[in-house]
């Protein structure tokens, strides 16, 4: 079952009176539980595509359906609500709230969803346990390593029980060990919670782990490969 359907997507930026075609006629579908990487060189349109997929940027043309909801038809306030309920985000530079502890950072989004306090605490502890941060829940981001911060960010992305997680170059600032560790955690969560992960990356380690690799160049898809034996080859 497709949870994301992208049809003829275009994004044109007007920079210094020159049109830049950042995403050029992209059509893609993502199924529930996919572990996919969008790769390509810098400026290939990976982040732009991810931003539009996350409802952070508007396409110039084309359509994005998420669980049969057309993002272009949502009002600004409904889009914010939609993002909160359906999409998890992991950013390159973690973007945790520095004044909150690891636990509070994960809880924050559930608080925005007005979930009961007990449920928030239970899910937070489960997620922090899943990302290997049990015992560090009261540490502030400044007391955590980059890898640990990104694991908190993954836990935060999953806290809202989203339909899919968009991770924009999540390993760009991490060393090899942390990258490997993070990818294992995300793959594990992908399997256990059946949550779709979509990465934008040019990190070969992420590409190696991904079950599906979509390659972009100059805003166009030049390949879309599903690896065999990963469950994404059907």
């Amino acid at each position: 079952m497709n949870i994301i359907e992208i049809t003829n997507l275009h994004k044109i930026y007007n920079e210094s009176e020159v049109n830049v075609h950042a995403v050029n006629n992209v059509s893609l579908n993502f199924k529930e539980g996919e572990f996919a990487a969008i790769v390509g060189p810098s400026g290939s349109g990976k982040s732009t595509l991810l931003n539009m997929l996350g409802g952070l940027d508007e396409p110039t043309d084309g359509k994005i359906l998420i669980d049969n909801t057309d993002l272009s038809e949502l009002k600004s306030s409904d889009l914010i609500q939609f993002r909160m309920q359906n999409i998890g985000f992991v950013f390159q530079s973690y973007n945790l709230i520095p004044v909150l502890t690891a636990k509070e950072n994960v809880e924050f989004i559930m608080h925005l969803q007005n979930r009961p306090k007990k449920e928030c605490e239970k899910r937070t502890m489960e997620l922090l346990d899943a990302v290997g941060l049990k015992g560090r829940e009261n540490s502030r981001p400044s007391k955590l390593s980059g890898g640990q911060q990104q694991r908190v960010a993954v836990a935060r992305a999953l806290a809202s029980k989203p339909k899919f997680v968009l991770a924009d170059e999540p390993t760009a600032n991490l060393d090899s060990k942390s990258t490997e560790n993070l990818l294992e955690i995300m793959e594990d969560l992908n399997k256990k919670e059946n949550i779709t992960f979509i990465f934008s990356t040019h990190d070969q380690r992420v590409v190696n782990k991904a079950h599906r690799v979509i390659t972009l160049e100059d805003g166009k898809i030049i390949s879309d490969e599903r690896k065999k034996g990963t469950g994404s080859d059907s």
Partner: peptide
């Protein structure tokens, strides 16, 4: 700015 962008992205409403 970056943090506010993150808050908007994860679904914190403008009013909040």
């Amino acid at each position: 700015i970056k943090e506010l962008g993150m808050l908007m992205a994860i679904g914190m409403s403008k009013a909040r």
